[in-house]
Design a protein around this nucleic acid. Structure first.
Lengths: 137, 137
DNA sequence: CCTATAATTCGATTATTAACGAAATATAGA
DNA sequence: TCTATATTTCGTTAATAATCGAATTATAGG
C-alpha cells in the first residue's frame, strides 16, 4: 500500500488563499459582476448582456470568482445561475462587508443595475438566441 | 487666461479608486510588505533586505501601495521611512480591518517577521553598504 | 559647495493576465 | 436516443504587470 501524504501537507496557506482572493477582486469587471450578484442571482448569458464581452471571457471571470470562493453556481433548466457564496468562510465574508462599504452609490454600478433590470425582463431563451445568433457584433 | 476644468471633473469615481486599491492588494509581495508595516515603519533598504528583490522593484511596489493610499513616507536623515497611512479614508481603513482578520498566524508572514527582526538589528548604513556594494548577488 | 549615497525613474525583458473566436462539452427537452 | 444550445475549454493574440540593471535625482553630511 503506497504512502499517501496527509492532506494537511498540500493544504494551501492562508496567505496563498488571500492572494487568490485579492487577485480575484483586482479587476473592474469582476467587481462589477460581484456588485450585480448582490441583488440577484444571474446566469452567464445575462452577465454577458450587461458587459458586452465575449461569453468565453465572462466564463473565465466567473471561474476566477468561483475559485476564490466568492461565488457559486447551480443549474436550473438550461441555464447555470451564479450567486454570491452564502455564509462563506470568514475571510470572504469580511471581504463582502468591506466591498459593500466601498461601492455604494457609484455611478457605474448604478448604470449596471439599471441595465440588468432591463435584461431581466427578457426571456433567457431570447437573450441567448441574440448572443448565439449571427446578428451579434 | 486659459480655461482650467475644476478639479472635480477629473476626480476619479469610487469604483476606479476601489480598483486601484484591490489591484494594489492583489500581489503577494505587496501584501507581505503591508503585513510588515503593521509592526514597524521601515525604510526601502530594510524591505529590500527581507524580500531579496532589486531595490527598483521594491520601489515600484511601494509606489503602487502609496498611490492606492495604503502607505505614506517620511524622510529622516538619509533614509525614507514607509508606514501605513494613519487614519486613512474609510474604504482603506476597512481594508486594513479585513486584512488583519485574514493574515494572522500565516507561516510565511511569521517568517518575514522573524527576518525583519534580524534586519532591524543592523545599522541602515551597513545594510545599504551591503546592497550597493559589489558583494551583493 | 562638494561628494557619497538612498531612492526613484528609465528602458528593456519576461511573465502574467485579459480578450477573442472556434471547438468541445454537457445536458434539457423533444 | 437524438438534437439544440448554454457554458466551458482551447489556442492565440494583445495588453498589462513584474522584474532587472543602469542612469538619474535629490540631499545629508563633510
Amino acid at each position: 500500500m503506497p504512502f499517501v501524504a496527509p492532506s494537511k501537507w498540500v493544504q494551501t496557506t492562508s496567505l496563498q488563499d488571500l492572494v487568490l482572493l485579492t487577485k480575484a477582486l483586482g479587476d473592474e469587471t469582476r467587481l462589477r459582476i460581484l456588485a450585480l450578484l448582490q441583488d440577484h442571482e444571474l446566469c452567464a448569458c445575462q452577465i454577458v448582456a450587461v458587459f458586452e464581452l465575449a461569453n468565453s471571457t465572462i466564463s473565465k471571470h466567473l471561474a476566477i470568482l468561483k475559485q476564490a470562493g466568492l461565488i457559486q453556481s447551480r443549474k436550473q433548466s438550461r441555464w447555470i445561475y451564479f450567486f454570491l457564496t452564502p455564509q462563506p468562510q470568514p475571510e470572504i465574508d469580511a471581504a463582502f462587508v468591506w466591498l459593500n462599504q466601498c461601492w455604494q452609490a457609484d455611478p457605474r454600478l448604478e448604470a449596471d443595475r439599471r441595465k440588468i433590470k432591463d435584461i431581466l425582463q427578457i426571456d433567457p431563451v431570447e437573450l441567448c438566441r441574440r448572443q448565439n445568433g449571427k446578428d451579434c457584433c
